[in-house]
């Protein structure tokens, strides 16, 4: 066990965990930030997506020791009031069915749009290809990313 100081959603957190503990389980079990979901544990489904220094990463395979001073943003910290353009678009398009994958979808979409604010549909599909939605809300995810892009570029 070792003590880690993590910068998450602009706050400083202490976690006393093994060095190999994936950030996902530190977030969920140690810090109680359960918005980031476990789906596969092998970076295949995208449910655990968070931002590390602005990049979308799979927290299920990212050891806490590798985070260091990196700035982590989770779904809980994407916006203060839940009104980030991507979150707003997800609500307006009524994307979610079971909703379990959607935090990861939103984090992937938000990171993508911050780098590519005016994407084509093909680019959206490619960006979101790594996130599985078992309910099959892909059409609405695509629509919501498109709407969020429009909100970001009024």
């Amino acid at each position: 066990m070792a003590q880690y100081t993590l910068n998450i959603n602009g706050k400083s957190y202490q976690a006393d965990v093994d060095a190999d503990t994936p950030l996902l389980w530190v977030l969920r079990d140690t810090l109680g930030l359960v918005g980031t979901k476990y789906g596969c544990g092998i970076a295949q489904c995208g449910a655990c997506t968070v931002h590390l220094n602005g990049n979308a990463v799979r927290s299920c395979t990212l050891p806490v020791s590798a985070v260091r001073a990196g700035k982590v943003v989770t779904i809980e910290g994407l916006s203060e009031k839940g009104d980030h353009p991507v979150q707003a678009a997800w609500n307006e398009i009524d994307v979610a069915q079971c909703g379990y994958c959607q935090a990861g979808q939103i984090m992937s979409a938000a990171a993508f749009l911050s780098k590519n604010p005016k994407p084509t549909t093909e680019q959206i599909d490619t960006a979101m290809q790594g996130n599985i939605c078992r309910c099959g809300t892909y059409h609405r995810i695509r629509e919501a990313v498109t709407l969020a892009a429009a909100k970001l570029n009024p």
Partner: peptide
Amino acid sequence: RNVDNHEIVTG
């Protein structure tokens, strides 16, 4: 819209 939308999109 889904009544849980806000809870879902805010984790």
